[in-house]
Simulated assay, not measured.
Amino acid sequence: MRGLKLVCAALLFAGIGAPSAFAAQCLGVAPGTSQRVVIGDTGRSLLLHVPSGYTKRAPLVFLLHGSTGTGAQMLAESKLAETADRHGFLVAAPDAGIAEGKGFVWNIPGVPTVTGKVPGPNDPDDVAFLTEAAQWLGTLGCADASRVYVTGLSGGGRMTSWLGCVAADRFAAIAPVVGLRAGNPSPVDPRFPDPKTCQPSRPMPVIAFAGGRDTTNPVEGGGAPYWQYPMRTAEARWADLNGCRRPRPTVSAGGIEEHGYTECRSGAEVVARIDSQAGHSWVADNEAMWAFFARRRR
C-alpha cells in the first residue's frame, strides 16, 4: 500500500491529473511560507518551508532542533527560511521522536540524551523517519534527491553527525552546529570516538560551526557522557574517513577561526568555523553553510 501511495503521489506531482500550479507549490505549501505536512504513512510530520519563487524540485535542507526543542522553534531561531528564500532551497524542520519536557530529543542509538537515558528499542527510530522523509519528498517531485543536506543545533548537531555516519547514501553534506561528532565516545577511552560506530558508505562533506565559549559541548572536549572527545578529534576522524590528504591552513578574521582538511576523496572536504566569542547557540553563518552545500551533490 505504501508503494502504491508513493507511485500515485509521484504521478500527481508530475502533472498527471493535477494542475501544474499545485505541483509547483509542493504539498500545497505556497512559496514563501511554512506549513506542517504529514510524511507518507509514517504517522509523523514536519514543518516544511517552500522558498519564494519556487517552481520546480529544489535542494532540500533538513534543520534539526536542539535537545528538548521543536522544529518550529529551530526554524525561527536559525533564520534559515530567510536564507532559503534568497537561494531557492526547501527547509524541513521536524520534531525529534522522543518527547521530553516541552519538546523532543533525538534517538542516537547507544548514546544518552540530555536526560542521561539511553534510547531503547521501543523509542521512535529517527534515522528511519528522516531518511524516509528525504526519499518521500524526492519521490513527490518536491525535492532534488541528489541535493539533500542536513544541519542541526546541539543535540540536533549530534544527530546531524550521526546521519553522516549511517545515512551517507541519502545526504549530500552535513553541517553540525555546536554538535560535531564522528561516532560515539569510545567505551575504552572516551577522549576518542569509537571507529565501529561511524562507518559511512561514502565520503561525507562536513562543515561544522562552534562557539569557543561553549560550556555545554566544549570544543576542547569533556562535558556530558554523550560529548567527551574534542572537536578537533572529530574533525581529524572525518578527515580520515574522507581520505583527506592535507590540513587547511588556519585563517582567523573578525573573531572567527576557520580550519579543516582538503584534497579529500570525491571533494568531501572537512571545514570547521569557530566563533571565539560565542557560546552554545546557533553560531552558524547561514550563507557560508549554503555555499558549502550548494557545491555538493550525492
Rank of each mutant, 00 (worst) to 15 (best):
T139Y: 11
P31G: 07
M74P: 02
A134F: 02
A234P: 04
L6V: 15
D123C: 08
F104L: 08
T262M: 08
V177D: 02
E269F: 07
G255H: 04
P247N: 09
L241A: 13
T215E: 14
D285V: 07
G103I: 07
P19H: 15
S34R: 04
E235T: 12
K5M: 14
E257H: 12
V29N: 03
I39T: 03
C264N: 03
G97I: 11
A175H: 15
R158S: 01
G3E: 02
A253G: 10
A30K: 14
S78F: 06
F104V: 06
Q135V: 11
C142W: 01
T68C: 04
K79N: 13
W136C: 00
G260N: 11
K117A: 14
L12I: 07
K79Y: 08
D240Q: 15
I207G: 04
V148S: 00
V188Q: 10
A30P: 11
L11E: 01
A172L: 08
G223N: 05
V148M: 00
P31K: 10
W162S: 03
A93H: 10
E258V: 07
F171N: 01
T139N: 15
T42Q: 01
K117W: 06
G103W: 06
V178Y: 03
V270Y: 06
L63M: 09
W238F: 15
N184I: 03
G183S: 13
Y149R: 00
A268W: 05
V127I: 14
L47F: 09
V177Q: 02
N122V: 07
K56R: 12
G101V: 09
G120Q: 04
S266V: 05
P119V: 09
A134I: 00
D41C: 10
G138W: 03
H87V: 11
A272C: 10
T55C: 06
V206Q: 11
T113N: 05
T131V: 12
A284T: 11
A9Y: 00
P190A: 12
C165N: 09
V150R: 00
S34I: 07
Y229T: 09
G157M: 01
T115N: 15
T33F: 06
L153A: 03
S78P: 13
P187H: 10
V178M: 05
K56S: 09
P176H: 07
P119E: 11
G71H: 01
G211D: 02
F13D: 00
R296V: 08
W238Y: 13
V105W: 05
A23F: 03
S146C: 00
P94T: 12
P112C: 12
G267T: 05
G15H: 07
L137S: 00
I39K: 03
P225F: 07
T250P: 08
Y226F: 15
A167Y: 08
G3H: 03
P59K: 09
L60M: 12
W290E: 04
G223L: 07
W238H: 05
P176V: 09
S252K: 07
R36I: 14
N242W: 09
V91Q: 02
G28P: 12
I39W: 02
Q277Y: 10
G71N: 01
G28R: 10
A134L: 01
E263V: 14
V178Q: 02
A172Y: 03
K79L: 08
Y261W: 15
S146I: 02
